[in-house]
Amino acid sequence: MSAADSTARADVPTGARVILASHNAKKLRELQRILAAAVPGLDPEQVISSAGISLPDVVEDQVTFDGNSLLKARSAAKATGLLAVADDSGLAVDVLGGAPGIFSARWSGRHGDDEANNDLLLAQLGDIADEHRGARFVCAAALVAPDGTEVVERGEMVGRLLHERHGEGGFGYDPLFLPDGQTRSAGELAPEEKDAISHRGKAFRAVAQHVARLLG
């Protein structure tokens, strides 16, 4: 191990086995729940996020969800020596030609400003009728192991956009999104309900099977 590797790995908690290359606490809890259910004997505390860990900055310069998720997972696996999971996800709106897509988190111009992103999307759709407000959440979840194993799994949640926010749960565009077959927005669903149908839940569950295999 090089001196650089030693420095990068010094702040990884003892016992950690999987790292989520994200500072998002809600994503971490989602992944912890899913992996704990899929991998017998895995303590959720063994699944950590990159928050508080010195990882190299990753420039997300790819033009696909798959490409950006792989960039982040590769960097985290190399820096920590752990199995690394990363996701890139976003909202694809039919009448916007699939936008905001990979720009979902910074659609308003400020990265991670959920309120501004939702306000802009509502303004852009304006008086668009319900039948033309179709949209889908898309997630590409990448798993990269220190031995070079790489897997990308995709998930989608199809629905339509509401005319105003409903619910305070979830994050991002969840309060504006009504999944097909539901009477409540993604922002009104309990975490376990959302996990069962969400784009990220589907992608993470698929990745969890590969994690189980790699952890033996």
Rank of each mutant, 00 (worst) to 15 (best):
D66E: 15
S6Y: 12
R106C: 09
G15Q: 04
R154V: 02
H111R: 12
H163F: 13
R165K: 14
I128A: 14
L82P: 01
D119W: 00
A140E: 07
I53E: 02
M1K: 13
D88C: 09
G201M: 07
L71S: 00
L214Y: 10
C139A: 15
A51R: 15
G167N: 03
R165D: 05
A206L: 12
V158D: 01
T7P: 00
D119P: 00
D88W: 02
L122V: 03
H210E: 10
S69I: 01
L70T: 04
L121T: 01
I48S: 03
S89N: 11
A203P: 09
G126V: 03
L35H: 09
G201K: 08
A203L: 06
G52A: 07
N117G: 04
L55W: 02
I19S: 01
A208H: 04
R17G: 07
L189Y: 10
S22M: 10
V144S: 05
K26L: 15
L178S: 08
V85P: 05
D5V: 10
G112N: 05
L161D: 08
L120D: 00
S50D: 04
A140T: 06
T7I: 14
L122N: 01
A73V: 04
L31M: 14
A25P: 15
R106P: 05
D5W: 15
V63E: 15
R106D: 00
K72D: 06
G201H: 06
L71D: 04
H166K: 14
P56M: 08
L121C: 06
D130E: 15
A37D: 14
K194I: 05
A208L: 03
E45T: 13
E150P: 06
L70W: 10
R205V: 04
S6M: 14
M1S: 14
A212S: 13
I34S: 09
T64W: 01
R154Q: 11
R184Y: 06
D94L: 03
L70E: 12
D11N: 13
A141S: 14
L178K: 01
E131Y: 12
V144K: 10
S185G: 03
V158Q: 02
R160T: 00
L176G: 03
A92N: 12
R110N: 11
